[in-house]
Amino acid sequence: MFAIAEATFLAPDVKRFRIEAPRVARNRKAGQFVIVRVEAEHGERIPLTIADSDPEAGTITIIVQGVGKTTKMLNRLEAGDTLPDVVGPLGEPSDIQNFGTVVVVGGGVGTAIAYPTAVAMKQAGNRVLGIVGARTRELLILEEEMSATTDELHLMTDDGSYGQQGFVTQKLQQLIDEGEEIDHVLAIGPIPMMAAIADVTRPYDIKTVVSLNPIMVDGTGMCGGCRVTVGGVSKFACVDGPEFDAHEVDFKILSQRNKMYREREKRSLEEFEMAPQPELDRVHACHLQQEHPEVGPRVGGA
């Protein structure tokens, strides 16, 4: 059992959790992730990036966007609740070096995944430029944190409700056009965004790294479900990645594979949202009942 020490919303359905996982906190490096299960009996295993860790306190931080059943179920948990399974740190750490000028591009919740690497890049002595984008103002997360770690932060919204109006790709192109000497780009966000960033940097031969998010099961190289095509070869994102050279990644295959269970995912989300309460009880009950056996399963308001 892994206790949730802290839980706060950063944006609608984007929540930050601090979780007690001492061994993970001790060994984790920027770019690595954990696999979490929210519900002990029938729950799915989902990968989430470790946004931060505190080895002293024995806690890790994750930032979760509710996109489907498991993430939405997770986002209903509060401090004091527990998770049955948290395993990690998985994946290869980011390649951190003093490259010179590094641009970190984050789209949506991808910003949370990029943030720890941005911090590490800064600590390694790089000049770090941040470009953070979101559809609209209220979805833009980690502005404060990103602005504290970057030398320059550009905020972009699709609808112009905050920062500059436009896509993150436009900003990157603008920086290049203005003669900014960029040595390294890290881009994390939706697949079309990462593919577009790769297209922007390709003609200039700027080394560009993306963090891929294929569907995973075990996260240890045992199932091969997370395979991605990079440079024409099959790689397992959970052990060989999740970061890869953006100019080598086949984004089309990645996006097709991620759609594999779309119908099923939609159905289970609908069912969950129609009847959320009993599902949530399965999750809540365990710790409540342990501490107060007299309480019994929760009924009524969340």
Partner: peptide, 11 residues
Amino acid sequence: ETNVVVGKTVT
């Protein structure tokens, strides 16, 4: 102890 990947969670 479940959820322990030796080499990662603990070396």
